[in-house]
Nucleic acid binder design. Structure first.
Length: 218
DNA sequence: AACTCGGGGCA
DNA sequence: TGCCCAGAGTT
C-alpha cells in the first residue's frame, strides 16, 4: 500500500491546485457570523448559487435571530423552498435562532462544541463558521474535500474526523481556507464522485484513485 | 453503517 | 425522465 503524501509533497500538490483554480473561493462570502451560519445551514446538500439566490432578499428583511423568530416554520419554509429540505431547514433555523437568543444573547457562539449543538449544525457547518468568521482555526471537510483528499493521497482516512486531523497536520494553517476551496473546486470540476475527468487532471501521478481504479479499468 | 429528508437544475 | 446536489439527524 502506498503511503499518504508527506508535508512537502502535499504542499506541491496544493500548489498545482492553486495554479489550476487561482480564484477559488466560496460564493457564500458572508462576514456577519449570523448570516454566515444561516447561509451555511441552508447550503447543506444544495449549492452556493441556490443559497445566494434566496439569502439576498431574506437577509434584507431578517437580520437577527429575533427577526427570524417573527416567522413561523411554514412562512420561513416558503421563503427557502427552492433549495430543498426546506421543512427540516426551516425548523432547524428557527430552533437555532431561539437558542441563540435565549442562551447567547443573540450572538453566534465561537466554539465547535457550542456550534455543533445547534439544530442543523454539524461538524462541517460548525467548521465553516469557525474558519470563515472566527479565527480560521478549522478546516471544513465536506464530501468533495473528503473524496479528493483521499484520492490524490494527501490523506489516508476512513472518515471525516481523520481527514480533518490529517489535513490540519499536513497543511500550514495560513493555507487551510484556500486549500479547502481548491479541493472543493477540483472535486466539482474534475475529480467528481462519478465519472471523474482524469484526462484533465494534473495530479494523476499522485493519485491513488487513478492508480488503483482508472488504470486497472483501462 | 444505513437510511431519510427534497425541490430544482441540467443532460 | 433520471441523476445529482459545499449535510445533518435518527435508528
Amino acid at each position: 500500500m502506498r503511503k499518504k503524501l508527506n508535508k512537502l509533497e502535499t504542499k506541491e500538490v496544493l500548489e498545482i491546485l492553486k495554479n489550476l483554480y487561482p480564484d477559488a473561493k466560496s460564493e457564500l462570502n458572508f462576514t456577519n457570523p449570523f448570516e454566515l451560519l444561516i447561509a451555511t445551514i441552508l447550503s447543506a446538500q444544495s449549492t452556493d448559487k441556490r443559497v445566494n439566490s434566496i439569502t439576498k432578499d431574506l437577509f434584507k428583511e431578517y437580520k437577527t435571530p429575533k427577526d427570524f423568530l417573527s416567522l413561523t416554520t411554514e412562512e420561513l419554509g416558503e421563503k427557502i423552498r427552492s433549495i430543498g429540505f426546506f421543512r427540516n431547514k426551516s425548523k432547524n433555523i428557527l430552533s437555532t435562532c431561539k437558542i441563540l437568543l435565549e442562551d447567547y444573547d443573540g450572538e453566534v457562539p465561537k466554539t465547535r462544541e457550542e456550534l455543533i449543538k445547534l439544530p442543523g449544525v454539524g461538524r462541517k457547518t460548525a467548521n465553516v463558521v469557525i474558519s470563515n468568521a472566527f479565527g480560521k482555526d478549522a478546516i471544513a471537510v465536506d464530501t468533495h474535500v473528503f473524496r479528493v483528499s483521499n484520492r490524490i493521497g494527501i490523506v489516508k482516512a476512513k472518515n471525516v474526523d481523520e481527514t480533518e486531523n490529517q489535513l490540519m497536520k499536513n497543511i500550514d494553517k495560513d493555507l487551510w481556507s484556500d486549500a479547502h476551496h481548491w479541493l472543493i473546486f477540483h472535486g466539482r470540476r474534475i475529480c467528481k464522485a462519478r465519472s471523474p475527468k482524469c484526462s484533465e487532471c494534473p495530479l494523476t501521478n499522485h493519485c491513488l484513485y487513478y492508480k488503483n481504479v482508472i488504470q486497472k479499468e483501462g
